[in-house]
């Protein structure tokens, strides 16, 4: 059978690990013992659920800022730039995608460091007298994420603006809507599903990412992926790490269901 190898691969290296993690997180014993201690630990230990709160806050901010930055940018690319230059403009806009993930975060560290480019410029222009603490903050994590997701969202929003049937715009203009009302009543509502899908993607990718907060945010406050890695790395506490990973997955699943439901309502 043609399908068998792929199915086996998925079962062996994706489903089985999950089952293993689930069993481990419950401290499952072959003799029959089982406990939810790892889960209750998450809800009772403030430093654990604080990581989840941090993760949600950071991811929420990242998603919001990225959408707000990317939408006007995508709109300008799609509507204000002559069509023959659009492809080039878009390619330029996503060029830094091609830097390696680790390197991208490191580059922001260079920019935001105590004696980095931004502080250097601020000191030279005399805007500040002391270098600002930019790296190793929540703001740095957010900037690093936003940088990546602005590119991603520009792509998805640009695509949904381009897919929009041009006669909608013509019809709105024909019926007396100026550019602003045409945008508010027609273009924005019609591109909203594309924005929501992009925002969901941003949320999922950002909340599961370890590198950006680890490099840019430092260890002042932990996000969920950092917390999970800490259990694996320093403490070797696989059961707890498994429980935390499954909780993180549950959050993503909830976001997915909310997003899917909203899209479904929107379509009818």
């Amino acid at each position: 059978m043609l399908v068998t190898p792929a199915l086996l691969w998925t079962l062996l290296f994706f489903v089985a690990p999950f089952v293993a993690m689930a069993l481990l997180s419950l401290n499952f014993q072959a003799e029959g013992g089982m406990t939810v201690a790892n889960y209750s630990q998450f809800f009772t230990n403030p430093s654990y659920y604080r990581a989840m709160v941090n993760s949600l806050q950071v991811t929420g901010m990242v998603t919001l800022i990225s959408v707000l930055l990317a939408y006007p940018f995508a709109w300008i690319l799609a509507e204000q730039i002559p069509p023959r230059l659009q492809r080039l403009a878009l390619l330029l806009a996503i060029l830094p995608f091609w830097t390696s993930y680790v390197v991208r975060s490191y580059s922001w560290l260079l920019v935001l460091a105590q004696n980095g480019v931004v502080n250097d410029a601020l000191l030279r222009t005399g805007l500040v007298t002391e270098p600002l603490q930019l790296a190793n903050t929540r703001a740095a994590t957010i900037i690093g994420f936003v940088h990546f997701f602005v590119m991603l969202l520009t792509l998805t929003i640009f695509a949904s603006l381009k897919q929009l049937n041009p006669s909608y715009r013509k019809a709105a203009a024909d019926l007396g809507a100026g550019p602003i009302r045409s945008f508010l009543y027609v273009i924005l509502p019609l591109t909203l599903p594309g924005v929501v899908v992009g925002a969901f993607l941003t949320f999922v990718l950002a909340i599961g990412d370890y590198i950006t907060p680890q490099i840019l945010g430092g260890n002042n406050e932990l996000l969920m992926p950092q917390l999970i890695m800490m259990q694996i790395g320093r403490r070797g506490d696989f059961p707890l790490a498994s429980a935390l990973a499954l909780i993180l997955m549950a959050v993503v699943t909830i976001a997915y269901i909310a997003c899917a439901r909203w899209l479904k309502i929107e379509r009818t």
């Binding site: 079962l11 994706f14 690990p17 293993a20 993690m21 990412d209 990973a245 993503v252």
Partner: peptide, 27 residues
């Protein structure tokens, strides 16, 4: 169902996939 199963890993963060593999490889 099988198609869904094969595409499922797309929705899971790399960290969790990596961790799951680490767990069973350890075992």
């Amino acid at each position: 169902v099988m198609r869904g199963l094969i595409t499922l890993p797309l929705t899971v963060s790399y960290l969790i996939i990596g961790m799951g593999l680490l767990v069973i490889f350890n075992m």
